[in-house]
Nucleic acid binder design. Structure first.
Lengths: 330, 330
DNA sequence: CTGAAAGCGCTTACAG
DNA sequence: CTGAAAGCGCTTACAG
């Protein structure tokens, strides 16, 4: 079922069919209504669908953008996805998800970018050892969540996670907490490896206190793993009286583990999460969390489309700063 | 940067370059090592990447499969995604995610299938009012999670959710629970609309008892919403002594809401989830849940690739039956 | 062993 | 107002 079939059915040339079905308004406008209707009817009758590969080859546009992320997924990503879709739909674009796996397979996952399947991509989690420039060659627009990256035709989103995490930890120190534990992600593919943990350490350095290495655990990316990790912390001979987690997911698990043991939060055990997700709002007690103020992603999606239009525009830096949102868990 | 550039650089024809870089082994094999190396070196030097649109147009294969799902996402989907990726990679395929939105926008989301961007798709959540046949025309392989659907060239996965849900509810009835509440998904895009709820009702019908409509709430797809819904249930003048949730997520929220109120689970309030996710295992108490025994998706991924190879093979029905997994929450 | 050429199905500048 | 033709960049049957 091709353009040619429709042309024959309607008794016109493929040129005319193309103009009517996908062509420019300025061309179709000058055409008699009768012709347009005849073509439209023929296409309808035959159930014609344009061949995307041919169109892409000709126009050099796939009208697809990708959202590259490392599982496990979160409500935050659902939010970003939904907003991307709305803004993409306005431009006739569709959004696809691109799960990026453990670092050794990351390059394989990114083949979708490498092969030019999409016009643009928002890379939420840039695996370590991946050269963004490589993908910029085949993908017109690239927006990357990264704290330091600075590359000519690539726009970046900075969260200032390290400063945010330091503020969260400092808050606990100033409260007089003696034993402040840390729950890191276990999966090595991460938004900005080590940034958050560095912030935690910064606060100790600033206060002239040693980092309690024996209270640092992994598992924040998986609720089940986090529960296990927090239980082991609470079993420590000199247990923590506070916990900073790299995710709200991990912090929620900590609240659960504390409740199981009958430990009072925040009095005997303060908990701070990261991400400021809506899930934290409804925990009990509501979760204190460090994260972006609001989930408004429009600026970065618009930066992406602007770059797809004009690859030579200057690289843009979008700041979505983390700050501490005080609720009742700390 | 095209095949022609590489051909010139290496001093051979595009035919030869094509054979060396992507062509069939039987052709490249007969070629002198020297030629092959010269071509490979030229491609390397120029940083050649094949144009995907051109290749797709020629070969009629995109080497992409999609996983179409309705957010919010879950660990179950992460699991399916990871297994798909492993099996796809073996065949040189990549996997993309296709988030499907609320029903009125579903058709737009599915344009990626309609336009033939992928060779095959696994549709985890088929929105109501969507005609699968339409997408079968542009997508060679289609595997759909659906309880009833039966369409010529489409393979289906049946979970027998209704029977599973009835078994879960029956278990509570036989335990002597008097007031069995129900927590449904709020999002209307769902795996199999109404199936689970129908199972809940079946158990009552079977026991000759009326369904307690006043104890049916929505919110199972969102932890925050679920907490609110369960609180309102517990505030009911004649509160429930048990709850069946359409998701483990909702059941986990119920455990939390019960703990907040100091209600003993399962003695005063039994909770059963659905999905049998790993998260439920580490809840306190560990969550009783109805769902598939194991998360082994290989059969359905293989069915998908088999159909991509041979679109005329008979439609296959893959059963991953739900059953009740007894743990401590009910 | 290697290459010239056809063709996948579109879009669009150009001619009439 | 409409169409013939070029060309996007590959793959591959065929010829030599």
């Amino acid at each position: 079922m091709t353009l040619r079939d429709v042309a024959e059915e309607a008794g016109v040339s493929v040129t005319t069919v193309s103009y009517v079905l996908s062509g420019r308004a300025d061309r179709a406008t000058g055409m008699p209504v009768e012709t347009r209707e005849r073509v439209a009817a023929a296409a309808e009758r035959l159930g014609y669908t344009a061949n995307t590969a041919a169109r892409v080859l000709r126009r050099q546009r796939t009208e697809l953008i990708a959202l590259a992320y490392a599982p496990p997924v979160s409500p935050w990503l659902d939010q970003l996805t939904a907003q991307c879709e709305d803004l993409a739909a306005e431009r006739g674009y569709s959004v696809i998800g691109l799960p990026i796996r453990r670092p050794e397979r990351a390059a394989h996952s990114l083949r979708v970018l490498e092969r030019g399947y999409v016009d643009g991509a928002i890379i939420v989690s840039l695996p370590p050892d991946i050269d963004v420039n490589h993908y910029a060659r085949t993908t017109r627009g690239l927006v990357v969540f990264h704290e330091h990256l600075s590359v000519p035709r690539v726009d970046v989103v900075r969260a200032h996670e390290r400063a945010g995490m330091a503020a969260a930890t400092r808050y606990l120190i100033e409260q007089g907490r003696r034993r402040i534990a840390y729950l890191a992600h276990a999966a090595p593919v991460d938004l900005s490896p080590g940034e958050r943990y560095a912030g935690y350490r910064d606060a100790f350095a600033e206060a002239g206190r040693p980092v309690p290495d024996e209270l640092v655990r992994t598992g924040a990316d998986d609720r089940a793993g986090a529960v296990v990790a927090v239980r082991s912390l609470l079993d420590h001979p000199d247990p923590p009286d506070a916990l900073v987690s790299e995710s709200d997911r991990g912090a929620l698990a900590a609240l659960q583990a504390a409740a199981d043991r009958g430990i009072k939060v925040p009095d005997d055990f303060a908990v701070v999460g990261a991400g400021n997700t809506s899930e934290g709002l409804f925990a009990s007690p509501p979760l204190t969390s460090v994260g972006s103020d609001q989930l408004e992603f429009r600026p970065l999606v618009e930066a992406l489309f602007a770059r797809i239009e004009d690859p030579d525009r200057p690289a843009q830096e979008i700041v979505m700063p983390w700050r501490l949102h005080h609720r009742s868990s700390a």
